[in-house]
Nucleic acid binder design. Sequence first.
DNA 1: GGAGCGATGTCCT
DNA 2: GGACATCGCTCCG
Length: 207
Amino acid sequence: MAKAQILPRDFYVDPPDVVARNLLGKLLVRRYETEARSRRKTERLAGRIVEAEAYFGLDDPAAHAFAGKTERNAVLFGPPGFAYVYFIYGMHFCMNICCEPEGQAGCVLLRALEPVEGLGTMARLRGLSADANSRLLTSGPGRLCQALGIVRETHNGIDVTSARSGLHVEDDGFRPEEIAVTRRIGIRKAAERPARFAIAGNRFVSG
DNA sequence: GGAGCGATGTCCT
DNA sequence: GGACATCGCTCCG
């Protein structure tokens, strides 16, 4: 298998439904730094994207960008390939990657990963025991952020096309066999739009 | 295994 | 003041 490549900015220029579909099978990688007994240690946490939802910006009543640009959603209106991380229900973070050219506000919500590297640390960050069911680690938008230590303060607005960000997406050559398309879940407005993409049959898909 | 529900911070009206 | 792109717990069958 060829060396994994970080997805370039061009990857994210397309409309969000195209990007969401293309993200399936790619690796979300987090460089996680810990300091134990005054020794700094960097660990790689990685999960394969198995579920993603498209949000269409100003045309989409369900999208955060729908009502126009605000301080909170400003990242969505910027150039493609940046993380939009927000806080929801008083206790969870969700991670999106903005797409489309600058000025257009489409984005892709990452809804589930298949954990690949650093499962022990993921379990600890999730508050689970090391032998917990791995499906509980990253199966859901709030869960995957917690498992990878993704928080708004640190990660909102960072460039996911740069290895230096500590949060990026890689193509390691994996290609999904079959992709399922369904209506979006967990939302009230415009949920019927067929904009949820998942790797068919993968047990880490949420919902 | 599924329905019901409470927790809880931030943003927008 | 209400809504919210969620999660985990309880209760029920």
